[in-house]
Design a protein around this nucleic acid. Structure first.
Length: 871
DNA sequence: ACCGCCGGGTGCC
DNA sequence: ACCGCCGGGTGCC
């Protein structure tokens, strides 16, 4: 199958989470070199252990950092040399705890530290060996079997007892929303934003403005007698932690997040204060800079920041005094900002916002800008990695739009302007694109230099809490920017089902995120109905389908029996794909449908001219040639490297034996020694060509019937037809044209410009306007607005129900005036019906988001396939 | 003395 | 670092 089909069919199919790991024990190691670093440890405290493979003195170096991500020292060389190879091999991960800070034997230069070692159960023994071979003493439970059984118990607990739902995580949040947001509803500045906001958008705006300007301590910090304590790590400091200026905007899709964000940005354009009208262009850039500097124990980057002296009073020596000033920062800042009001004359630096989004959302930003802002007020630049753009030129703009992949590519450039600019604000749109799995993109956005950081996503914990780490890192939410802190304090408690994990996540999300759901009638959308229309396959379709399904079942069953399902996943998925294609339209399948069946791994003989010649010779010679195994005319001919010919299924069975060899000449055989006959040469087999030429199908005719009924009813009503197969959309054009429809097509092959054009044209009302939009879901990603339509036809059920939801949301969203009717076309008694079943299960799983460990995913996959194949 | 011993310089990775 | 380690200075009793 093509890559496109592949991605269309299920985006999340291959995401893998890491194996579960358990505490093996710990070793004692000194943290050395304390005298060289500013990071401190004040009591019993967790520390972060960070590998430094590029350390010039020792490639095994492990850096030790405290809760504030400040370096404390290093793990002593002798221990690091044993642990680092294991860490780098992915066999273990380590976490540090300093048990008693400097009581007892401690001194100014080194502190003993417990290094807790975690590994998969299967690696316990080998890791233990390596550690003792390295001369380290591992402290752990002596009884291995006890350790194991305990681990199992923990796992069961997680599976059964403490599974919590996404909604539960946000329960607390909801309460806070009512309290906080209601009280802080704000209007955007009229001189920039011309649209009226919905109430919930005003509240969202108020919340965001408040978060950007709040001086509150970040979650989990407490002030005690002028000192600041992190209650999770027990880190204590005199220096006030910086407030977290930003957070996660997690409103449901379709609540108008982009407009809310534009409103937030709009404030930067009018006056310095958010709600005040004093005319000073950008006063609080200084205010925040100073806090930022002083809030940090180190300010390594300050030297690099804006070379030009005009920018601020930075670098004038103030930084040196910071420690003594900490207590009064609050008051200090206020006084300072007042003084800046007075000298409102100096334009220091423009407040620039960088918006990072997937390419599909680009057009949303552009259209929303056009729709809601007064022309010319927010100057916007689309940045695709233009090396020739220098900083000064970019600074002419208020908003720079770019994509995740642009950033990831540029992360290696030292002179990338986006990296050099000190952004006033960075917004990650569709922030769930940032996952642990995509280290490069996560790293790139995390490295961005910005005062205010926002992650925007409708599905904040879609992939379980594991991916939240990437967001925490991006938000620079200390100490969670260090993975082991996150692991230890949130992720592991959560997966192991402790209440602490859940409550921490709740506290976290309630403070830094805002989520409203659409179902609460926030925006008074007209109702949406979903109905399912079952379609009976034609005789020919049914015949082929049943045959394919029978064969597919056999294959999958065999894989399951042999325990090789996961290994052959791609083969299985391509089979499943073919079945789905038959349900929609035979023409989607290659003419030689069945050659795809039993094994993808058999190479096409076309690439092997010698064997091809022999095969052709045999086929031409013997009219009555039989497969030597089943002694019948062969089906699905396969030729071996020793040039003997069999049925595909016969020879596959044969080579599954212990010592596979050719039944005729005893030549040893493996699957790579088999070659299938090329589609053209096996034309005896091509009974489906007739149907392939026919571009219509049972489903297509049903769709046409429904569209025509609709047209008779109301000729101006617009429909969107979604399919995951681009070819299907193209195949629909002919019959639609014949039936007199004016239609448009939107698919993944179009660039952003073209897509925007199509969407715009679709809006055209009146008799000449198009009434049908053929859309591939991939091209209709989040953000695209198709509210001109009020009917939706889903040609196939989507593997993942969230994707279907998203499709419907393109139509059922703000701006929709009509009742929305959605029709799903489902081929009866087919894999499609079972996909619906699967969707129900997935929805249930999504509600229990944190249940998804690797093991579960695997099981679900096998279960999925059992359901799909009704096995 | 191709040693032992002394005492100063020095100190993460 | 009230340590260990290194390397230079030194050398009977």
């Amino acid at each position: 199958m093509s890559l496109d089909e592949w991605q269309d069919s299920d985006p999340d199919q291959f995401s893998q989470s890491s194996n579960d790991t358990y505490l093996l024990g710990f070793v004692i190691a000194n943290i050395v070199g304390l005298q060289y670093y500013s990071g401190t440890i004040s009591g019993r405290e967790m520390v972060g252990l960070v590998r430094q493979p590029l350390n010039p003195y020792d490639c095994n170096a492990i850096k030790v950092v405290n809760t504030r991500t400040l370096q404390v020292g290093h793990i002593e060389r002798s221990v690091a040399s044993v642990l680092s190879p294991l860490i780098d091999a992915g066999m273990i991960h380590v976490e540090g705890i300093v048990p008693n800070s400097r009581g007892g034997t401690g001194n100014r230069y080194r502190i003993p530290c417990q290094v807790h070692i975690f590994a998969g159960l299967d690696l316990f023994d080998v890791v233990k060996d390596e550690i003792s071979r390295g001369g380290l003493q591992l402290i752990c439970d002596n009884d291995v079997s006890f350790g194991l059984s305990e681990a199992v118990v923990v796992k069961e607990k997680m599976d059964v007892k403490y599974v919590k739902s996404v909604d539960e995580i946000f329960k607390l949040v909801d309460k806070n929303v009512k309290k906080k947001a209601k009280m802080g509803a704000m209007d955007p500045p009229k001189e920039v934003i011309k649209s009226e906001l919905f109430v919930h958008q005003k509240e969202g705006l108020g919340w965001m403005v408040n978060r950007e300007n709040s001086e509150d301590l970040p979650p989990f910090w407490e002030e005690k007698n002028g000192k600041f304590l992190n209650v999770l790590t027990n880190y204590c400091t005199d220096i006030r932690p910086e407030p977290l200026r930003g957070g996660i905007l997690a409103d449901d899709m379709g609540l108008g997040k982009t407009l809310t964000l534009l409103s937030l940005i709009a404030f930067d354009k009018c006056n310095g204060g958010v709600s005040c009208s004093v005319d000073s262009n950008s006063l609080d850039i200084n205010e925040v800079d100073e806090v930022g500097e002083e809030g940090k124990e180190s300010c390594a980057s300050s030297g690099k920041k804006r070379k030009s002296g005009r920018v601020s009073k930075r670098g004038t020596g103030r930084g040196k005094k910071r420690k003594s000033e900490n207590k009064s920062i609050d008051g200090d800042v206020k006084r300072k900002s007042l003084s800046f009001f007075d000298k409102s004359s100096t334009v220091l630096c423009k407040k620039m916002t960088l918006v990072v989004c997937p390419p599909s959302v680009f057009s949303t930003w552009i259209t929303q800008l056009e729709e809601h802002t007064i022309p010319g007020k927010l100057k916007t630049y689309m940045y695709y990695g233009d090396r020739t753009k220098d900083i000064e030129e970019l600074k002419k703009y208020d908003v720079v739009l770019t994509t995740y992949s642009t950033l990831a590519t540029e992360d290696s450039w030292s002179d990338s302007p986006v990296k050099k600019i000190e952004w006033w604000r960075v917004i990650l749109d569709e922030a769930h694109f940032i996952k642990n799995a995509n280290a490069q993109q996560s790293q790139a956005v995390t490295n961005l230099n910005a005062k205010r950081r926002w992650a925007v996503t409708g599905t904040p914990i879609q992939n379980g809490s594991a991916d939240l780490f990437s967001l925490m890192a991006f938000l620079r939410f200390e100490p969670f920017t260090i993975k082991s802190y996150w692991q230890r304090l949130v992720q592991r408690p959560l997966t192991q089902g402790s209440k602490e994990g859940l409550s921490r996540l709740q506290v976290l999300m309630s403070t830094i995120s805002l989520r409203r759901t659409k179902d609460k009638g926030l925006i008074g959308l007209p109702p949406k109905t979903v109905e399912t229309c079952y379609i009976e396959l034609s005789g020919e379709e049914r015949e082929l389908y049943d045959e394919m399904e029978r064969m597919a079942k056999g294959v999958v069953q065999e894989y399951i029996r042999a325990g090789s399902l996961i290994r052959n996943y791609s083969t299985v998925l391509s089979i499943v794909l073919r079945l789905r294609q038959i349900c929609t339209n035979l023409a989607l399948c290659p003419s030689d449908v069945r050659s795809l069946l039993p094994s993808n791994n058999i190479e096409d003989v076309s690439d092997n001219p010698d064997l091809l010649k022999k095969l052709v010779a045999v086929l031409q010679d013997g009219e009555d040639f039989d497969c030597p195994i089943c002694i019948s005319p062969p089906t699905d001919i396969v030729i071996t490297c020793c040039a003997h010919i069999f049925c595909r299924s016969c020879i596959l069975k044969t080579i599954q034996r212990t010592k596979p060899c050719c039944p005729l000449c005893r030549h040893p055989l493996s699957q790579s020694d088999l070659f299938s006959s090329p589609p053209e040469s096996s034309d005896s087999d091509n009974t489906y060509n007739s149907s392939s030429r026919n571009s219509t199908s049972s489903k297509v005719s049903t769709l046409l019937k429904l569209l025509l009924e609709l047209k008779n009813q109301n000729p101006s009503i617009k429909s969107v037809v979604f399919s995951q197969f681009r070819k299907m959309l193209i195949l629909l054009e002919e019959p639609l044209k014949a039936a007199g429809f004016k239609f448009l097509r939107l698919d993944g092959s179009m660039n952003a410009r073209k897509r925007a054009e199509v969407i715009e044209e679709f809006q055209i009302q009146g008799t000449g306007g198009p009434t049908v939009l053929l859309a591939s879901l991939k091209a209709s990603g989040a953000g695209i607005n198709l509210t001109a339509a009020s009917r939706v036809f889903l040609l196939e059920p989507w593997w993942n129900p969230a994707v279907e939801e998203q499709a419907m949301d393109r139509i059922h969203r703000i701006g929709q005036k009509e009742e929305v009717k959605i029709v799903r076309l489902i081929a009866g008694s087919s894999i499609e019906e079972r996909i619906l079943e699967l969707q129900e299960r997935k929805k249930k799983l999504a509600r229990e988001a944190f249940r998804r460990t690797r093991k579960d995913q695997k099981d679900v996959s096998i279960d999925d396939l059992r359901i799909l194949m009704s096995l």
